[in-house]
Design a protein around this nucleic acid. Structure first.
Length: 431
RNA sequence: GUGCUUGUAGCUCAAUGGUUAGAGCGCCUGACUGUGACUCAGGAGGUUGUGGGUUCGAGACCCAUCAGGCACCCCA
């Protein structure tokens, strides 16, 4: 391993990518804080036993290792299990309901693909300790506000409820054991179509009658209230499903009252997600410009967070995939694309003027202008070229003439215009 | 984890198994001792991802490995 490279599925984020990533992070956390969410950060490494047993079947994706003392450790694979640990560990210090957000990396040893990496950053927002449908609605409102603020031109959040899916399976005459297979099949509906789902279910020994019933229920489409109405009629004998539909109705009522634009969400009975710990609402947000999968997802999981605390703590939340948002924004060419952090580049004309240039740089920084100063001398042409290549907007020239007159030459490198400005007005001129 | 595919200069890509692996863009120097982005002249830059093998001869063919992409599996 003498080769210089990073680990498969893990990426370096060079400055240009980082600036967009930080914009994404700041936008999301800004929306969260406007809703009064509080920040939380936990270690990337946890005791393996904290993370184990929360996934269901496949835990081979967890990165595990031992420390020097032989302790079994693991890298967190999401930020939800650490949240559950924190809620139990600091129960006395946390006032419920608790709105918290967390932004950081998680790790999964899966096969990398576009928009999917082994180290990935997520911004999680959860409301812990409330079962109100308003909490569910607030989570949807937050993601809608955040994606709008990021400039996504069109996106739709698909809403469903775990007990609606359960009701679909029950109405089809299937037992709970077959349900998992059914969920996985119908979750692929948008990808493989009705025929694909039919084939997969038939291959899985689901009866043709049940398949027909499932496909009918799952293809109900339209305005949220209409979808809910039709599902209520078709699932009228199933109390759990009816309760779930009432819950969705309440959540949608909350969305309306919160002013979430109606074109931004719909009820989609075929949305399943990996259902292992969701107990209520499930949702996914997609954009037509990204066929690879959803932008983000989440739902309500009333049992997981209380697992360490020893009692159910109803929680609803979501996770923004920073990497995927970044990839999609690059692809769609949305969001700011600054070349550098600096706005001004102060040239150093020569040894005589170095002190003036350094002082000017200090004034600019004190005035809030991000400023680069030339370090290695060279002709003015070379310095301007460096400024231009960095992508800095303004070059500031202080030659003997300017110093004598108490002025600074401001050159706009985007067009080429330049003008002399009195020394005291430089900050204002760049603002 | 399974299958397919790609890997050549900083970037995008050429090169029938056959001379010293090329081009565009970018980069460096100069024309330019107070002006970048345009123009002109010159220059640097390569263990063809890595390691084996076949062959008189391999960037090309074979095997392995690493990395990227795609389709499965999975997606907490």
């Amino acid at each position: 391993m003498s080769k210089v490279q990073n680990i498969k599925g893990m990426r370096d984020h060079l400055p240009q990518a980082m600036m967009l990533r930080q914009h994404i992070a700041a936008t999301i956390t800004g929306v969260c804080e406007r809703h009064g969410f509080e920040p939380l950060q936990t270690p990337i490494i946890e005791y393996a036993e904290v993370l184990e047993g929360k996934l269901g079947d496949d835990e081979s994706l967890i990165y595990r290792f031992e420390d020097h003392g032989g302790r079994r450790l693991a890298l967190r694979y999401d930020q939800t299990v650490p949240l559950a640990r924190v809620v139990a560990q600091y129960a006395g210090q946390i006032t419920l309901p608790w709105r918290r957000y967390a932004l950081g990396p998680s790790y999964r040893g899966e096969r990398p693909a576009r928009g999917r990496y082994r180290e990935f950053y997520q911004a999680d927002a959860d409301i812990v300790g409330s079962s109100s449908p308003l909490a569910d609605a607030e989570i949807i409102a937050i993601l809608t506000e955040a994606l709008s603020a990021l400039g996504f031109p069109d996106f739709v959040t698909m809403l469903n409820h775990r007990q609606v899916i359960g009701g679909v399976a029950r109405a089809s005459g299937l037992d709970e054991a077959s349900a998992g297979r059914v969920y996985r099949a119908i979750d692929k509906f948008d990808k493989i179509g009705a025929d694909g789902v039919r084939d997969e279910l038939l291959r899985g020994d689901v009866s043709p009658q049940a398949v027909a019933q499932i496909l009918t229920l799952v293809q109900i489409d339209g305005a949220p209230t209409d979808v809910l109405q039709e599902l209520s009629e078709r699932l009228s004998g199933d109390e759990r499903a009816l309760a779930a539909l009432a819950n969705l109705r309440a959540i949608i009522g909350g969305l309306e009252q919160m002013g979430v634009p109606p074109e931004r969400y719909k009820v989609t009975p075929r949305l399943a997600r990996g259902l292992s710990y969701y107990t209520g609402l499930v949702f996914e947000t997609a954009t037509p410009h990204w066929p690879e999968g959803s932008l983000l997802g989440g739902g309500r999981y009333d049992e997981l967070v209380g697992q360490f605390a020893g009692r159910p703590i109803p929680t609803v939340g979501l996770a923004f995939g920073i990497d995927r948002l970044h990839d999609v924004m690059e692809e769609l060419n949305i969001g700011p694309r600054p070349a550098t952090t600096a706005v001004a580049y102060v040239t150093v004309f020569g040894p005589e003027q170095a002190a003036s240039s350094l002082e000017l740089a200090r004034e600019l920084r004190a005035g809030g202008v991000n400023t680069l100063i030339n370090l290695d001398g060279g002709g003015l042409g070379k310095q301007l070229k460096e400024a231009d290549r960095k992508g800095v907007r303004y070059a500031l020239v202080l030659g003997p003439d300017e110093v004598a007159r108490g002025e600074v030459m401001i050159k706009d490198l985007r067009g080429g215009d330049q003008r002399a400005v009195p020394r005291g007005e430089v900050v204002a001129a760049l603002g």
